[in-house]
Design a protein around this nucleic acid. Structure first.
Lengths: 119, 119
DNA sequence: GCGCTGTATTGACAATCTTCGATACAGCTC
DNA sequence: GAGCTGTATCGAAGATTGTCAATACAGCGC
């Protein structure tokens, strides 16, 4: 498919310019649901470290084989976390040969951060 | 007690100036654990809306009675979420008479947002 | 084709989370 | 004191989550 990650329910990627910081206007339940899902995707130590390691990697990308060992979890578990992060719009996946390379989606973390800021 | 919210395991409040953005340096597992817990406290639609409503309230504070109805959850559940948010360092509680007033901890959301930003 | 290597999916289990009703506690008023 | 009101805690039920071993799939080299 061409347009990726606009998965089952809601386009989880498009929080970007959707709303102002949560302390500026009161969230309706739909916005809250959306942001909660974005945050839930981040709210796991393994996934935070995955993001961190990907960002710090050569060329800002990493394959599953690079990630399994430093994370200290099984390969299926790492794949699972990477899938979650991808579906949540934080990572993209590109396969080259046998390897699946993941990289950060530019601005994805920032758009969430902007919603939390009180200024 | 005087110094509140420094609960059981780790001082959940003190992420503030603890580390640089997660995309700058790779997180060790302890930092990841800490940030994940902060994010998990936010990663719920009810709690996001609670924060949002408190921030928008008169004098930036609200009592449980003000929050139960707009959230649409039972009073015990709202109390539970407020306790979580307080323990996570996002809210403070102050009792005046029969009412418990909650308000935002200044800078708490911002310090988390700073850790997510890639710039 | 066959085997190998890297990754994804499946199925299961344990742990955690969200929610509620029932109940307990705290502080007011009379 | 007794009764009321606002809030917190308890206990339980249902849903979700994180993890793994086993297995399936995809793409390479021979």
């Amino acid at each position: 498919m061409l347009t990726m990650a606009s998965s089952t329910l809601l386009p989880l990627t498009d929080i970007s310019a959707c709303c102002s910081p949560i302390t500026r206007e009161t969230l309706d339940s739909e916005q809250a649901e959306l942001l909660a899902r974005k945050l839930k995707a981040l709210a796991d130590p393994a996934r935070l470290r995955l993001i961190s390691i990907v960002a710090a990697s050569e060329d800002a990308e990493a394959c599953v084989c690079d990630l399994t060992e430093p994370i200290g979890l099984s390969q299926p578990t790492v794949s699972h976390h990477l899938k979650l992060l991808t579906e949540a719009g934080y990572l993209t996946r590109s396969q080259r040969g046998n390897w699946a390379y993941y990289r950060l989606v530019p601005g994805a973390l920032d758009s969430v951060a902007e919603l939390l800021v009180t200024a």
